[in-house]
């Protein structure tokens, strides 16, 4: 039986003005029709850090993440404010395509395009007007190196991306996202479909990438959150219950629901 926890007892950390933030949400709510999937999420994400969103399935963490780059448009109703460079990007007048170029996303299942490895990376660049061949080639190499995939595929850039292994495909998806040179990278359980060795590779990649990007990662794997993140937010049934540094979260959780989750009593 799932214990009932009070949603009033939360411990959500805020940041003072000295911290430089990449993004922030204010009272973010998500509705799927009549289903209220996310309640008043107030979270801020420090620049160049990895923030992990943890919680059981159905806790709303993926729903929250997908709202950050407006991937919920047309699927769910999202209210509240999403601050990015002092702009509320949840406004309907905002150019969502621009947003998504600055805030990239990697999904749970690797979803490379049914095109060659090279084409996977350059397709969106070219669609955005980058035509210079040398520049494109440079981006291919840079992003594949960034995703720690270059050495494995540099001799087969014209092979179909679908011929890669699952772990390679996922790193290709990361490379495809960072080729756009975003500010923020959102990852939705990027390792849940991968084997342990590929998972390690992706995690190493993320640790390397945080030097350049702000990363927000949804994971149901607490060890993974502990390994890669510096901030950690715990979601429960559509509420943000606790948000603190990863160290605190795992060594000294503040409220009962987090304690029980970390201890493994549910989830």
């Amino acid at each position: 039986m799932l214990k009932q926890y009070s949603f009033d007892e939360t411990a959500v950390q805020t940041f003072d003005d000295s911290t430089s933030l990449a993004m922030k949400t204010e009272n973010l709510q998500v509705f799927y029709g009549a289903n209220h999937a996310m309640h008043d999420a107030n979270l801020a994400f420090p620049k160049n850090q990895i923030t992990a969103l943890i919680g059981a399935s159905g806790s709303g963490k993926s729903t929250y993440l997908r709202s950050l780059n407006r991937m919920n448009d047309g699927i769910a109703t999202v209210t509240g404010k999403i601050w990015y460079h002092q702009v509320d990007i949840n406004e309907p007048t905002v150019n969502i395509y621009e947003i998504r170029r600055h805030i990239g996303m990697v999904f749970q299942r690797p979803n490379p395009f049914a095109k060659s490895i090279r084409e996977n990376i350059v397709y969106a660049l070219r669609a955005n007007g980058l035509k210079d061949k040398a520049e494109l080639e440079e981006r291919v190499e840079k992003s594949l190196r960034g995703a720690a995939l270059w050495d494995e595929v540099k001799d087969s850039l014209d092979k179909s991306a679908l011929s890669l292994s699952g772990g390679q495909q996922q790193r290709l998806c990361i490379a495809r996202s960072i080729a756009m040179e975003p500010d923020v990278l959102l990852l939705d359980e990027p390792c849940s479909a991968l084997d342990p060795i590929s998972t390690v590779k992706v995690e190493e990649t993320l640790l390397e990438l945080q030097k350049k990007y702000t990363i927000i990662i949804v994971t149901h794997n607490m060890q993974q959150a502990a390994r890669v993140s510096s901030q950690c937010a715990f979601f429960h049934l559509g509420h943000v219950m606790e948000y603190t540094s990863t160290g605190n979260m795992f060594s000294n959780p503040q409220i009962p629901v987090t304690q029980d989750y970390i201890a493994g009593s549910f989830g």
Binding site: Y97, R100, R101, G104, F113, A114, A124, N128
Partner: peptide, 14 residues
């Protein structure tokens, strides 16, 4: 698959 659409949209493609 819907994931192909999401891949395109998440890169800022129309």
């Amino acid at each position: 698959s819907r994931s192909q659409r999401e891949a395109g949209l998440s890169l800022g493609l129309s």
